[in-house]
Design a protein around this nucleic acid. Structure first.
Lengths: 237, 237
DNA sequence: GTAGATTTGTACGTATGTATA
DNA sequence: GTATACATACGTACAAATCTA
């Protein structure tokens, strides 16, 4: 659709499949201009996407250096659904819907999301099973005003796919927080873990393009199965 | 120095000090063009920095909506990384250098960083104390080839300030990984925690602008004092 | 060491398309 | 329907860093 985004995808593909090796240089901006028959600004936009994603590092006067693509990731980096993560990592996993029912927004949920107290939400609880073990419990709250209908068979698959492709929602950004907390009774039951242990809690407030918050999630992970990978650029002061 | 970066800083300041309220719109791009007497592209570059940092959300035909920046930073469980701790000056903290000596790169370090096995590195161990309690232990490995001299008094302050301002290094990006692991003997001693407990380990491989890796860090956090906050945008497919 | 070619960085201008109010 | 506002794209110019002959 967009030229610069298409070019980004092509270059990304080249980096991932080894056409462009880590440590080597991408073709120069002017070469890419000729190659794709677009203006230099379009190329630079595509390269900026690669920079932000951690694929390349540019050096003035030199070129665009291909970075080492992170190898063993099991991350929750970015706004990515569990389903997408799983297919990207080729992990065999099973999702079970434990609970799907309507509730009303309480005080703490209202404070976190900005939702009106008493508003109707879906409460969705799912177990994520890998190699026969439940390692994650996801607790989702979804604003009924935006998600009116939520079929259980879609919840067992990928709710993000349902939201974007069936409902036409534009999911845009999320604020996340990671802490370690004592396991609740529900954690102990759903993940078959012992008392007096902890879980990693990833809380996310997810919003649409128009800045409406539609989802609050608590992703509760078994300690020993948790890993978060991130790429960060240093901010210039 | 750069126009678009200066404008970014000014707009950021306006958002942080409440000049631009969450939920309201920034001045339009054309208004900003007049206000700063620059071209529209320069304004758009500044706005892109705000977008990536999670300060605003743009909507075509509408404008740039100011987001609620710290909605999620609840005073539940204290601390993020030590760096954010420092910038949020409100917390009184002390750093103590436990160890600073020369070592040689071993197998695992060589694998993580790409450093030559046997190369000389500084090993720096520091305790981070907040309200009289050691809550973080930082273990840094610094390549001597790049960091030739490391005065202990600078290590007790901020090594990044030393690297950037005294040595003129251009720190550029980091790959990070967060896991939860059993506390080592060293953790137990340095943080005064019990046996059979866990710590959050933040491993970082930090590189310069020229893609040379100069630092490997393990930041080991007490479980109950750990908090990591992140902003993420959904990737278009 | 220097001069020149190459490459990226910044900035401005213009035009057209698309979404919103 | 019109005006406003952002999105994309092309072109130009000059500055700064890097590399090479």
């Amino acid at each position: 659709m967009n030229k610069f985004h298409d070019i980004f995808l092509e270059l990304e593909k080249g980096i991932l499949d080894g056409t462009y090796q880590p440590g080597t240089l991408l073709p120069s901006e002017n070469q890419l201009v000729d190659q794709y028959s677009v203006s230099r600004e379009t190329i630079r936009k595509a390269l900026n996407l690669l920079i932000n994603a951690g694929y390349i590092q540019k050096k003035q006067g030199k070129g665009s250096i291909v970075l080492n693509v992170r190898k063993f990731d099991l991350p929750i980096s970015g706004v990515i659904s569990y389903k997408e993560l799983q297919s990207a990592q080729q992990i065999h996993s099973v999702t079970k819907v434990v609970e799907l029912q309507e509730e009303q927004v309480g005080d703490s949920l209202a404070r976190l999301t900005g939702w009106r107290k008493g508003a109707a939400v879906w409460r969705l609880v799912r177990q994520r099973e890998i190699d026969g073990e439940v390692v994650i419990v996801d607790i989702d709250y979804l604003l009924k005003e935006i998600i009116e209908v939520l079929p259980e068979e879609r919840a067992a698959d990928s709710i993000y796919d349902y939201f974007e492709n069936d409902l036409g929602l534009a999911i845009s950004y999320a604020q996340k927080e990671i802490t370690v907390e004592a396991a609740t009774k529900e954690d102990q039951e759903l993940m078959a873990i012992q008392e007096d242990t902890h879980v990693v809690v990833v809380r996310s407030v997810v919003s649409l393009e128009d800045t409406r918050c539609f989802e609050y999630t608590e992703s509760r992970h078994r300690l020993d199965k948790f890993k978060f990978v991130d790429f960060a650029r240093r901010r210039k002061t």
